[in-house]
């Protein structure tokens, strides 16, 4: 596949940067707003993992599906969920993507192909298979991405889902975002294999181990796997190496993370590195990027204001959406 060997061209790399920056700035603002006490919620920051979904999503359209997890704001924004829908949901407002009923762990936006966000470790993968099966049955060219963490590869659902996807040659790509931690547990303490990508061999599918923070490598690996799925050649497991800048959940003191390890990851902030790369490759000027960043800041300002100005859902919402039609229990 020639795409695999080529590098993303200027418009593509700029688009990856735009999405990664949206994720980064959005996350910075979320944390500031939660810190201020203006909004209260459990929040799982994806800071540090921006490149993975940004470089993957440029290969996807609204017709393609994703299933993601509680730490999934980056995956959602990269897939096109608007900051307004996201912020309003996080603020528990009726204008949110799920009328405020789902909250940060369950953002859903079918128009953008964001089909499931789960709070249960391991559950994104079996459901992604079903979306992929539907596309296969209907002869559609849609591809489904299942995002999950490294810790999730230790749960039974991961193994069942990979086996089934391989057996049925489903158009699905399993993207493991290996941020080295599962809650407080270091990778080595919870996982018996050095590379999760090697687990693909047990299910007769390609397993790619890539630097998820490198936009060239990530774009190329995702592109290859997505093309393979679209061509009907079956699933791929991608292990995208990355690092979580903040604790598991906002407010977690992250005492279990080594300070040096964290500092060195932050010193190699993938969004900052990509910015530098764009300038070095002559693909963008500092001024042009600054302009882009300002635009995103304004979009986030507007989204926050929209969320705070929106009403809470009516209490009648407790009875709605439980079934297709309201029933008396």
């Amino acid at each position: 596949m020639n795409q695999a060997r080529s590098l993303p061209d200027a418009p593509v790399l700029l688009e990856i940067y735009r999405r990664a920056t949206l994720i980064k700035q959005n996350d910075d603002r979320f944390r500031a707003v939660i810190q201020s006490g203006k909004l209260v919620m459990p929040y799982y920051s994806p800071r540090g993992q921006e490149i993975i979904p940004a470089a993957t999503s440029v290969h996807l359209s609204d017709d393609d599906y994703i299933c993601t997890i509680y730490r999934g704001v980056h995956d959602m924004l990269a897939k096109g969920v608007t900051p307004r829908a996201l912020w309003a949901e996080l603020a528990g407002r009726v204008t949110g993507s799920c009328k405020g009923k789902g909250g940060p762990m369950h953002i859903t936006d079918p128009a953008r192909g964001v089909m499931v966000t789960t709070g249960i470790v391991g559950s994104s993968m079996p459901i992604a298979n079903g979306l992929a099966l539907a596309a296969q049955l209907r002869g559609e060219k849609r591809v489904t991405i299942a995002y999950f963490g490294d810790g999730a590869s230790n749960i039974g659902a991961f193994h069942e889902a990979l086996n089934l996807a391989s057996l049925w040659k489903l158009p699905v790509v399993f993207i493991c975002q290996n941020n080295r931690f599962a809650e407080h547990t270091r990778y080595e303490s919870g996982t018996s294999i050095g590379r999760i990508a090697d687990r693909a061999a047990a299910y007769s599918m390609p397993g790619e181990h890539v630097d998820g923070n490198d936009p060239d490598a990530m774009w190329s690996a995702a592109g290859q796997a997505i093309a393979r799925a679209r061509a009907g050649d079956g699933p791929t497991l991608i292990e995208a190496m990355t690092f979580r800048f903040h604790g598991h959940i906002f407010g977690d003191a992250d005492g279990y993370m080594s300070k040096e390890e964290k500092a060195s990851a932050i010193a190699r902030d993938p969004v900052v590195l990509l910015r530098r790369r764009l300038i070095e490759r002559g693909m963008a000027t500092d001024a042009a990027l600054a302009e882009l960043e300002r635009g995103i800041e304004l979009e986030i300002d507007a989204a926050l204001q929209f969320a705070l100005d929106s009403p809470y859902p009516d209490l009648a919402e407790l009875r709605r959406d439980v079934y297709a039609t309201e029933i008396q229990p």
Binding site: V94, G100, K101, L318, V322
Partner: peptide, 10 residues
């Protein structure tokens, strides 16, 4: 009789 809702008033 519904899943636990997120929004505070709910």
């Amino acid at each position: 009789f519904c899943p636990v809702p997120f929004s505070k008033p709910l």
